[in-house]
Design a protein around this nucleic acid. Structure first.
Length: 945
RNA sequence: GCGGGUAUGGCGUAAUUGGUAGCCGCGCUAGACUUAGGAUCUAGUGCCGAAAGGCGUGGGGGUUCGAGUCCCUUUACCCGCACCA
């Protein structure tokens, strides 16, 4: 709101003396300004938002942080600054902006720390949160802190537990493509058994209504468990013995745990799981509706890993028995080239198909395979190993006898854990066939498989019975069609996406609201929530190998034992964006009213590291809640921007070997030196602060230096920002030295938001200088110098150029170029000696999202009684029209010669006339006659002679 | 191996989206002011050259009057996935 005419300059200055605190007017005192405004915002709850049906909503979300003990470094706030700029911008545009923040507070590091120190994770976590909050407050974010959530707060995790129970009470109906109450399934079983139902399940079951009705309660519960969306199932899991827990696929990288880097092995265990795989197709399809980066969407597509093919049944057996074995293939067309079959070592078929004669060899091979860690398996991918089972399969098309082998290169968890091997057209089968001297039958005309397989899906089929003469593209559907006609298989889609393993044998997580009824294995939900995390005497597993919760005293539900695992990290972060909409609601995760208004996240900013974890799980979680009618949007995050990681810029000193003498970078080649990391806080613009260096470590107190031109120059390199590299830059220090506004603008100025870039404090002076210049526009030699003069056309043009540029930059998240535009503009005002209020006012408005503290302060000087964040954004478009001219580049015979400025509205003919009449043209024609003049309106004029 | 991306001065980057490459900032050079400072201001700064001029967007080729931008090819680096049949 603008108090037009009420305040003149003198009034504004007077008003200033009653400012929230006494700010020194004369120079840019960022410390006082920032403190003053941060207190003002907090006291007045400036950024508190409520539902306002009269205004459009806009939801800007940051990925909430895990509050680690190390605190924030300068890289963490990058995304927060960008989202804050966007939020403030949207507020100026009149939107009702929801911009909350909270903490992902359950997790491993706090627990590991607890094991070492005995300090309760809750205590460490609260301490870290306080530190994070303090650091964030200094940067001047416009969060509505009244909506803060912490995932370890029982009032919050009540709703994590609630969602889990809802999933327990639901199954996935594949016909409707929707989660539905499990009670519907029970009713259907009682009426018709399993027949005709198409529900996502762990294992295909077959029973009639009569059989169902005859089952005991325990048996019925076991059957239902096969269909629940949150279920217990036995599966191969990633077991990390160092951490004493299972891990999800996204928590494992290269055979090591992401947290801690401990080795991980495959193990079959009974675990709680979420039936994410049921949602694979929907998770894939609705990616198209999202405004996410292509690379991120591609990552999710790869992770979901859809592949279309066929399931085909092969008769397998030996002298004693015969079975139908199903395999999955994407290349049904190559069925005439199958020369052997391969089973995964973990496959159930191994036991059935191993003949007595091969028993010993197979057992030896299985033992060998089991001993290997996941890591070894991966690094040894080129080594071929395997063993013959003794049994044979029959090719359903040729009747040929195919030996069944067992090999590690077939994965138990994908498809059916068994494959048909076509060595001529699959490189893995080819290598295996060569190793064990199995036949290779080429199926594509003219292909040469003497040295390697021909994997490409192109060419014309041969040696393939009815498929001969077809192209591969025609043969694939034709083969599947034939398989279906013969009733030996069907079209089948497979996904790489697995169900999410949901138990962790850890302490610091959400307890499962589950107890075992009557002490037997019949898990039932505890509906009275929250089920709070109990206290334990130590945070380690019990002597009997139970999870830490096994230590809790009197931990039972109506005398029955309670589930002792806790939920994984992604549980608490899967629906936090919904809770922000209505964070203090005791009756629901989010009220209908709040959800109808805020709906979904319009802009989500965070790192790529969550591409296959959090961003899959929360989409799944959201879709589930949507199916069950609790929320109104199918997808949670409409637009997503990944900020690039900020790396560290390390500095080095060079010690001459066997001395305590350090040589400057430029002279180091003359000596034999060792490179040492030096703390970056001791270095300014690559110059070492020698005294600070001596004081840094006792062993350097007596250090000698070989200078170049009187100073010590350090070397540098880009590395990950970490303590051990001594390159961590703390935002607090930047705020203290330069101010939060400088930090904010500098982080944006560093480069494109989405690009990874090293932090380099060296350039920060330029941005700081810019803010000082802004201040000096208002105060000339200690005098308040803003005038009421009318602006000139040139000044207005510069202003409108700035507004247009900054607006389009913010919309495109191109914040670095906005900062440049501000600098250009201020330089121009300086040059014009322009201190006119009519120019400065709108300038401050567009600058305010970037540098909110200084602009609020100066805004106040101009006589505004409220913070600009509450002001509507004046467009300033009506007062001045931009000149519509264009500088036509004129080329003569293809060579660019000069530029001519002409009105844009001119017709082609008029432009031609104007160019021909231009005296400059004569110089370049060299007397030749003009043959043709080509005018590209608004682009270029070509003269041909 | 598959997929995605990047490449421009000493450095971070920009380029009206096919129109005079190098905006803005750092750094550097020179100067001014100054009871020296990591303050401020002025001028210069892609490369070669005394200059005229020439050369310049990782390399090679192409389309076009005109290419950093589009197409083909090649190299280097970064990221993701990886025995997924």
């Amino acid at each position: 709101m603008r108090s037009t005419g009420l305040f003149c300059v003198e009034e504004a200055v007077k008003l200033h003396t009653f400012a929230p605190s006494k700010v020194a007017v004369m120079e840019y005192n960022f410390t006082e300004i920032e403190q003053c405004w941060q207190q003002y915002w907090a006291k007045n709850k400036t950024f508190k938002v409520e539902i306002d049906p009269l205004r459009p909503k806009f939801y800007v979300l940051d990925m909430f942080p895990y509050p680690s003990g190390a605190g924030l470094h300068v890289g963490h706030p990058l995304g927060y600054i960008a989202s804050d700029i966007y939020s403030r911008y949207k507020r100026l545009k009149g939107y009702n902006v929801l911009h909350p923040m909270g903490y992902d507070a359950f997790g491993l590091p706090a627990e590991q720390y607890a094991i070492q120190t005995g300090q309760h994770p809750a205590v460490t976590t609260q301490k870290n949160i306080a530190r994070y909050r303090e650091q964030m407050d200094k940067i001047g974010f416009s969060y509505d802190w009244d909506r803060e959530v912490q995932t370890c707060d029982p009032d919050y995790y009540k709703w994590t537990q609630w969602a889990f129970i809802e999933m327990f009470h639901s199954y996935y109906c594949c016909d409707e493509q929707q989660a539905r109450p499990i009670s519907e399934l029970e009713e259907a079983f009682a009426l018709q058994g399993v027949g005709g139902l198409n529900a996502a399940c762990t294992e295909k079951l077959d029973f009639s209504a009569a059989q169902w009705n005859a089952m005991s309660e325990q048996e019925k519960q076991d059957v239902l468990m096969n269909y629940r969306i949150a279920y217990i199932g036995e599966t191969a899991v990633n077991w990390c013995s160092a951490l004493g827990t299972v891990l999800a696929n996204d928590e494992v990288k290269d055979g090591f745990s992401v947290r801690g880097g401990h080795p991980v092995e495959q193990k079959k265990m009974k675990q709680w799981q979420l039936r994410v795989s049921a949602y694979a197709e929907r998770l894939l399809n609705s990616l198209e509706t999202l405004a996410w980066s292509d690379s991120l969407k591609e990552m999710q597509r790869n992770w979901i890993g859809k592949s279309e093919g066929a399931e085909m049944v092969f008769k397998v057996g030996n002298d004693s028995e015969e079975y139908d074995m199903c395999v999955f293939t994407t290349r049904a067309d190559t069925v005439f080239g199958v020369t052997f079959m391969v089973l995964a070592p973990e496959s159930d078929w191994v036991e059935k198909l191993t003949t007595p004669g091969q028993k010993e060899a197979v057992a030896a091979y299985l033992l060998e395979a089991k001993k290997k860690t996941e890591r070894e398996r991966m690094t040894e991918t080129h080594k071929v190993s395997g063993v013959f089972s003794g049994s044979y399969a029959v090719n359903p098309f040729t009747g040929e006898k195919l030996p069944v082998w067992i090999s590690e290169y077939v994965l138990a968890g994908y498809g059916t854990g068994a494959i048909m091997a076509v060595p001529a057209h699959d490189s893995r089968d080819y290598v295996f066939a060569k190793q064990f001297d199995l036949p290779i039958v080429p199926l594509i005309q003219g292909c040469d498989v003497s040295l390697e397989s021909f994997d490409a899906k192109e060419g014309v089929m041969c040696n393939s019975g009815f498929l001969n003469g077809m192209s591969v593209k025609e043969a694939i559907p034709a083969a599947i069609h034939e398989v279906e006609r013969l009733g030996i298989g069907k079209r089948q889609v497979n996904y790489r996406l697995r169900d999410a393993i949901f138990s962790r044998q850890r302490y610091w997580g959400e307890p499962f609201p589950i107890y075992n009824k009557d002490g037997v294995a019949m898990p039932m939900p505890i509906e009275a929530l929250p089920l709070e995390l109990p206290d334990v005497d130590a945070f380690l597993p019990t002597e009997t190998g139970e999870p830490p919760l096994g230590r809790a005293k009197d931990w039972n539900y109506q005398g029955c034992p309670i589930e002792k695992s806790t939920m994984p990290g992604f549980a608490g972060s899967s629906a936090y964006y919904l809770r922000y909409m209505d964070p203090r609601n005791h009756d629901a995760l989010v009220s209908r009213e709040a959800n109808d208004y805020w709906r979904d996240v319009d802009l989500y900013i965070g790192g790529t590291e969550h591409a296959t974890g959090h961003l899959i799980y929360s989409r799944f979680w959201n879709k589930f809640l949507y199916d069950r009618g609790y929320i109104c949007q199918d997808e949670p995050f409409k637009k997503l921007v990944n900020q690039g990681m900020i790396q560290g810029r390390s500095n080095f000193v060079y010690r001459v070997v066997n001395t305590n003498t350090f040589v400057s970078l430029g002279l180091k080649e003359q000596y034999d030196t060792t490179e040492l990391h030096v703390d970056v806080s001791l270095v300014q613009n690559d110059r070492l602060d020698v005294e600070a260096f001596k004081a840094w470590r006792p062993e350097f107190a007596a250090a000698q230096f070989i200078f170049e031109e009187g100073v010590y120059i350090c070397g540098w390199a880009v590395e990950k920002m970490s303590k051990s590299m001594h390159n961590v830059v703390n935002p607090d220090r930047i705020c203290a030295d330069y101010g939060a506004d400088t930090l904010r603008m500098y982080e944006m100025f560093l480069g494109p938001l989405e690009q990874a870039k090293p932090w380099d404090t060296n350039g920060i002076d330029g941005v700081h200088r810019f803010l000082k210049k802004v201040w000096r526009l208002f105060y000339d030699k200690e005098q308040y110098a803003v005038t009421q003069e009318a602006p000139s056309a040139r000044e207005l043009k510069a202003l409108h150029k700035l507004i247009g540029k900054v607006e389009s930059d913010i919309e495109q998240f191109s914040f670095n170029t906005s900062v440049s535009a501000f600098m250009i503009f201020v330089n121009e005002l300086m040059e014009l000696k322009c201190r006119k209020q009519a120019i400065l006012e709108p300038f401050l408005i567009v600058l305010s999202p970037f540098a909110p503290h200084i602009t609020e302060e100066l805004w106040k000087q101009l006589g505004y009684s409220q913070t600009i964040s509450q002001a509507q954004y004046p467009q300033y478009n009506g007062s001045f029209t931009l000149e519509h001219t264009f500088e036509y580049p004129v080329s003569v015979n293809g060579k660019l010669r000069f530029k001519k400025e002409l009105p844009l509205e001119m017709s082609q003919e008029q432009v031609q006339q104007a160019i021909l009449a231009d005296p400059q043209l004569e110089k370049f024609l060299g007397g030749a006659l003009v043959k043709k003049v080509i005018v590209v309106p608004g682009k270029i004029v070509n003269v041909v002679c």
